[in-house]
């Protein structure tokens, strides 16, 4: 009985990683919720503009899909790399080895202290000084370098949320540290880690708009290209904003569904 209780307590642990998208909460059901108002409003506005003012809105929306694809590509590649970096960083942060711990913590400290935009510029030009990499790859490296640090904190929190008894049980059976982590701790930590990873994914997707300054033709960049040719700044950025909003709203809904599923299957 006691065990069940501690498990439930584990479930309720929320990893707070700041400025992600607002994830709809459970009680936010029904049509009258912030999520539905925003979602239907965005879809409605988009359809209204495209149908009733096809010029310029239809032209704009036909111009943007390439950019959406690039935005998704940068996001997915970056999050995958960030997950790997994050796992290593998270393990480093809980490592008993002083030096590994120090390296991981310093990395997190530096990344947190420098604005993402500055990091992007810096890594982009720093890379450019030594190697010739495609713009897109440079952008992905810069994004994942930054998000790896945040992801590291997510992993660290997820791993430390697992009761110490689990480690002791595994060690007492004869598993070494790495085996304990792999067979016992991480499979359980995953449940706590997944929702914040979803949040980070959404935050990262939004932040990829920053890579438009690095000559990567993402959604925002495509918008800027269109606007600078047509001088329809207001109209173009209206569409860009609505598209970002629709994407993040759908994703945040998916994350909240995932969260709910995870908490149901104990």
């Amino acid at each position: 009985m006691k065990k069940n209780k501690t498990h439930e307590e584990q479930q309720k642990l929320v990893i707070d990683v700041g400025d992600g998208a607002a994830i709809p909460i459970k009680s936010d059901k029904g049509l009258v919720s912030a999520w539905w108002i925003a979602f239907l409003g965005a879809i409605g506005t988009l359809l209204f503009l495209v149908i009733f003012k096809p010029d310029p809105y239809q032209r704009i929306i036909e111009f943007l899909p390439d950019g959406i694809l690039i935005t998704f590509q940068v996001t997915v590649y970056s999050i995958l790399m960030a997950l790997v970096i994050g796992l290593v960083t998270g393990l480093g942060r809980i490592s008993r080895n002083k030096y590994i711990n120090l390296v991981a913590s310093t990395y997190v400290e530096i990344v947190r202290g420098v604005p993402l935009l500055v990091q992007l510029f810096y890594i982009y030009y720093a890379l450019g000084k030594f190697v010739q990499v495609p713009d897109m790859m440079a952008a992905v490296i810069a994004m994942s370098f930054c998000y790896g640090a945040y992801m590291g904190e997510v992993f660290r929190a997820g791993i430390s949320s697992i009761h110490k008894g689990q480690t002791e049980a595994a060690r007492s059976l004869g598993f070494n540290r790495a085996q304990t982590m792999y067979y016992v701790i991480l499979p359980q930590a995953w449940r706590t880690i997944l929702p914040p990873v979803g949040n980070e994914f959404i935050a990262l997707l939004k932040d990829t708009s920053l890579v438009s300054i690095l000559a990567v033709a993402d959604l925002l960049r495509r918008g800027r290209e269109f606007a600078s040719e047509s001088f329809l700044y207001f109209e173009t950025y209206t569409m860009v904003a609505i598209i970002y909003l629709i994407i993040t709203l759908i994703l945040s809904k998916l994350v909240s569904i995932m969260e709910e599923r995870l908490s149901r299957h104990v």
């Binding site: 006691k2 065990k3 501690t6 498990h7 009761h163 008894g165 689990q166 002791e168 049980a169 595994a170 060690r171 007492s172 059976l173 004869g174 598993f175 070494n176 016992v184 499979p187 359980q188 104990v266």
Partner: peptide
């Protein structure tokens, strides 16, 4: 120590079964 632990079973107050 891991080899030694394989020969020494341990049962805890809070069971510590693997819930997954």
């Amino acid at each position: 120590i891991n080899k030694v632990r394989m020969e020494v079973g341990m049962v805890f107050q809070s069971f510590n079964l693997f819930p997954h």
